[in-house]
Design a protein around this nucleic acid. Structure first.
Lengths: 207, 207
DNA sequence: TGCTGCGCTAAGCGCTCGCTCACCGTCGGC
DNA sequence: GCCGACGGTGAGCGAGCGCTTAGCGCAGCA
């Protein structure tokens, strides 16, 4: 398609910012375990075991199990927001920027599905202050997408009745990819990203 | 809009098929608790407490905590499938039937959000046989929506590149309503249903 | 009135959870 | 060669979990 995505999906090796090495291994193990079973069904023994350590080792690097989730959620939201910002602020028409934003956002949710699942579905397991911090990042995510939609409406490129409602639906569609996407299934993250960009352009009535 | 929904959203008093009364009270309490905190974070003491009973009372009516989730999931999926079937098999064009299906399915996910959350997001907490049974119902849900889309394409009413991918996206969009919808927020279930029907008709390129 | 069946409770069993603590091996600096 | 710092382990604590069991109160009936 002509509005092919140009932003990466954030598929570069992740978690490289987490040091030291043992702390990163524990965090990666926690992401896998939380994504598979959910936060509450995951035990600290399971996380430590996956990282090849004893249960007590976890508490050298993290104060609690919840701090692990908080760190994962924070880094993941930062990455998701970064992907959307890159797409939203590149040059091009609103149509091009929206297609780029959706396809790269979807590629991230599909390609890094384990991380995305934790980031999008385990928010309620956080305590009040941590949850409030993450909700602030979510409002910024919403604002980036809404900004592109508003630009398109203002430029006469889009035909949208309810800007906030449509923005919500677009984000919802992208986020839910983390729930159903199967890495062993027939679709690649790139293919889903392209299909979804096409569908979203139709939703906003792109000319 | 012209293709206004005509199927109810399934808002009638639910769980009336569950008897005796004590079993129903326990089940309703479990739905609320599972929706608020998730299955694994909910204790049997919490469920029994909400129903005004002692922890042991739960085991008179249900063999295990998982049986409660299974019953909720089964009844909820039956109801969701029933809503889609009613819309899919009414008279009218594919466009009318798809708009009806989406708006009533969305109304159910918004209006009965607690039930829908449990039904859609706690599937992994079920054991293998129960999960397999529910997955069978999900395939029927997918088939109903795909059937309408295929009808529309065959009749020349819709313009769809990837029928299975678009069906997946439509269902995903509807289901995710259970995640973000807030009963105290600015939107009514009816309004979201109508907006989503409009967006979905655009996604399928309805003439 | 006495008996029976049943819905329910009080108490608690065995287990696993998140987390702690006393201790240990390794390694750079003097 | 000795020492302190640091990253790690083994054992286990108190708490809370899902679930069980012995027994209680009460409605229905002879």
């Amino acid at each position: 398609m002509s509005t092919a995505a140009e932003t990466t999906g954030g598929e570069a090796e992740p978690w490289e910012e987490v040091t030291p090495d043992a702390a990163r291994r524990l965090l990666v193990a926690a992401v896998e375990a939380f994504a598979e079973r959910g936060y509450h069904a995951t035990t600290t023994r399971d996380i430590a075991g996956r990282a090849g350590m004893s249960p007590a080792a976890l508490y050298i690097h993290y104060k609690t199990k919840e701090e692990l989730l908080h760190r994962i959620s924070r880094i993941g939201h930062d990455k998701a927001l970064d992907i959307l910002r890159t797409a939203a602020r590149r040059e091009g028409s609103a149509k091009e920027r929206l297609a780029d934003a959706v396809s790269s956002f979807v590629r991230w949710h599909a390609g890094r599905r384990t991380t995305a699942r934790v980031v999008q579905y385990e928010l309620d397991a956080l305590g009040p202050e941590a949850r409030a911090e993450i909700l602030g990042l979510r409002r910024q995510v919403d604002a980036e997408v809404r900004g592109i939609v508003e630009d398109g409406v203002a430029a006469g490129e889009f035909d949208v009745l309810d800007v906030q409602g449509t923005t919500l639906a677009v984000l919802s569609l992208c986020i839910d990819v983390a729930r159903w996407f199967n890495i062993d299934g027939p679709r690649t993250p790139e293919a889903v990203g392209e299909l979804y960009a096409e569908l979203v352009l139709r939703m906003v009535g792109a000319k």
